[in-house]
Amino acid sequence: MRTPRSILGGLFGAALAAGLAAPVFAAGEAPPPPRQAWSFSGVFGTFDRAAAQRGLLVYKQVCASCHGLTRVAYRNLAAIGFSDDEIRSLAAEITVVDGPNDDGEMFERPGRPSDRFKAPYPNEKAARAANNGAYPVDLSLITKARAGGADYLYALLTGYRDDPPPGVQALEGMHWNEYFPGHWIAMARPLYDDQVEYPDGTKATTEQMAWDVTTFLAWAAQPYLEQQRQIGVRAILFLLVLAGLTYGVKRRVWADLKH
């Protein structure tokens, strides 16, 4: 069920989408991803905390072996409902090279909440060398850096097919995806049913994991989104009232003019 507020937002969004977004998709030779009813879409949308927390688990156990998330710090996780203690222990799972100390030596220490997520490879060359020449991009901004955003990411993660459609020649080392521009993607299908065990007992279907990790990455791309919309609603309501009052004053001022 779509709520009235999301329908309103959707209408404006659809009007905008009819404008400029169409050419963007037309260029990619892949179908536009289906629109999903995300917890964070619409004017009053917020990130589903439980889904985002499950999404972090999927990221850690599946994506993180190849993809970095280097713009997110552990302290940021408080925004999706992790407690200080949880954040501290999550951060402590990584080892950080720090220094130099007073003796001029670099040293290793456990991660702290102020540390950012660690990239799996030291540099792009190492990443390409380990991945058959393909570069697993950093995921910090992924939903902002792709046309279609979260819808596209979800469609991509659930869009793998075991075999290309009849008549399409298979490409060595590449994988057929319904929604990837050009369809052949270097990344193998990452999600399989029950790959992750959720502590809250949610059944880990491919779709569920894709949904959760997309929610998490959408948050990671714009952690300020909820604050942005809250301020936006207040600012626009304020302006509407002020504009109404100003219009009243304008009528009064102009009333003494004959026209």
């Binding site: 937002g9 404006f12 969004g13 905008l16 004017v43 902002k144 942005q228 919309r229 301020i231 936006g232 609603v233 600012a235 626009i236 302006l239 509407l240 002020l242 504009a243 100003t246 219009y247 004053v249 304008k250 001022v253 102009w254």
Partner: peptide, 23 residues
């Protein structure tokens, strides 16, 4: 007063983009 009213309407339009469709 007339320009102020027009400006406020314009800022509502501007803010719809800033807060809800910034990209």
């Amino acid at each position: 007063i007339k320009d102020t009213f027009a400006l406020l309407l314009f800022f509502i339009f501007y803010f719809v983009f800033v807060f809800f469709y910034p990209n």
